[in-house]
Design a binder for these strands. Structure first.
Ligand SMILES: [Mn+2]
Ligand SMILES: [Mn+2]
Ligand SMILES: [Mn+2]
Ligand SMILES: [Mn+2]
Lengths: 216, 216
DNA sequence: AATAAAATTTAGATTAGTCTAAATTTATTA
DNA sequence: TAATAAATTTAGACTAATCTAAATTTTATT
């Protein structure tokens, strides 16, 4: 099996791969809160294990086995987050750090039973898709609120920023997963947006609009 | 916080302390599957942290803070075992290894909520008491089946050996937690015992009788 | 009490993961 | 395209946890 550090590197490479073909040493160092030199060492180790394709100075990609491991860790992370919110009544901004530990519990039998126990949820508390036991999941096509025009509407289905502060802010505004919103106006000056909701109207900055994801 | 290795040492010292005042280096090495020299190194470290009282060559005892940590880990271990059996339908012989990993999940808030979620269970699947969030628990006074006489009876409340093999054997014989048994006969030759149960009669070796615990 | 055996500690290495500082390679820009 | 800046790797060191082999201390046995 793989060490905790190896698993965290694979997971990070997977996440960064969604935005760029090749993942760079510095991107990993920033995400993992470590130094570039430490990253280089680990990349050599993962390349030796054939979990990544590594060309010095050129960044890395996951091999199929490496991707499989990464997706399995993400599956565990999101299922545990779902458990913490749905069964233990934690709030969506409280669960990430705990899930960071729990995702490394090794048993797949355990996670498959947890999945069944919860009724095979498709999305985690932040709207992210939960891979099934074969690693398959829908990548539903979300766009930031900032990408739609006046009078267009959508349903909140995810967030780009997972920080507790941002999630708490959204919670307070009632901007949570599943809520329907419609753009009532866009302020010229700073392009902040006025959103019409079920029972009220809220104004959000461009920054927030960029990090709040919807389906049409 | 403490490392995983430190937590495992404290837990092992706690368990061994139940049978002997001072815990020796070799006892720990045997239980932790490591070498005596490694144990010595760790004992120095734990003594520096004031989690154990260590006198070279004389063995160790836990300090109050050390004991508190040990009991908290045991609480987590047993609550997770209960969860795995009661909620995820694992068998009692399947959960120990998973709980060995899960007991190191750090959040106490998580474990307290898990405790509530399950209705504050008092005993784990093997009959061992689960400490409450203050570390308190009943040490109910059990005796091995081998300690009672012909015609005496009792209720199975625990096991001394927690190995999967032993637990599976008991399961197959129907000798599980809560079952009532009565000693029908003791064979002279090897002191094996014939137990009368609800619907049948089973014969167990002295070895088994020594490891099966009952209340009267 | 002297000697042998057992238990324990010390000495010196090793591995995983990390770090700083220096060297090297790649990318940018004048 | 030559100089400069940025990114990355290499070199050398450190900590935690482990090991083997040797030295020391305690315990048991003549
Ligand atoms: Mn998360
Ligand atoms: Mn999530
Ligand atoms: Mn157990
Ligand atoms: Mn147990």
């Amino acid at each position: 099996m793989n060490t905790l550090a190896e698993e965290n590197y694979l997971k990070s490479i997977y996440h960064l791969s969604l935005n760029a073909e090749n993942v760079s040493t510095n991107q990993l160092a920033a995400l993992l809160n470590t130094k570039a030199s430490s990253v280089t060492d680990m990349l050599k180790k993962l390349a030796d294990k054939e979990l990544i394709n590594y060309t010095p100075y050129q960044g890395v990609t996951l091999t199929p086995p490496g991707e499989k491991i990464a997706i399995n860790i993400i599956r565990k992370h999101r299922l545990w987050e779902f458990f913490l919110v749905e069964k233990l009544n934690f709030k969506w901004d409280e669960v990430h750090e705990m899930a960071e530990e729990m995702e490394h519990i090794s048993s797949n039998e355990l996670i498959d039973r947890l999945d069944r126990f919860m009724g095979y949820p498709k999305y985690d508390p932040h709207g992210d898709p939960i891979p099934d036991c074969d690693g398959k999941f829908k990548v539903h096509d979300l766009k930031p609120v900032s990408a739609i025009e006046i009078n267009e509407s959508g349903i909140i289905c995810g967030v780009r920023d997972h920080s507790a502060g941002f999630l708490q802010y959204l919670e307070k505004q009632g901007l949570t997963i599943g809520k329907k919103i419609k753009v009532e106006d866009i302020i010229e000056f700073d392009r902040s947006m006025i959103l019409q909701m079920e029972t009220k109207t809220v104004q959000i900055s461009r920054e927030v609009a960029n990090n709040l994801l919807i389906t049409l």
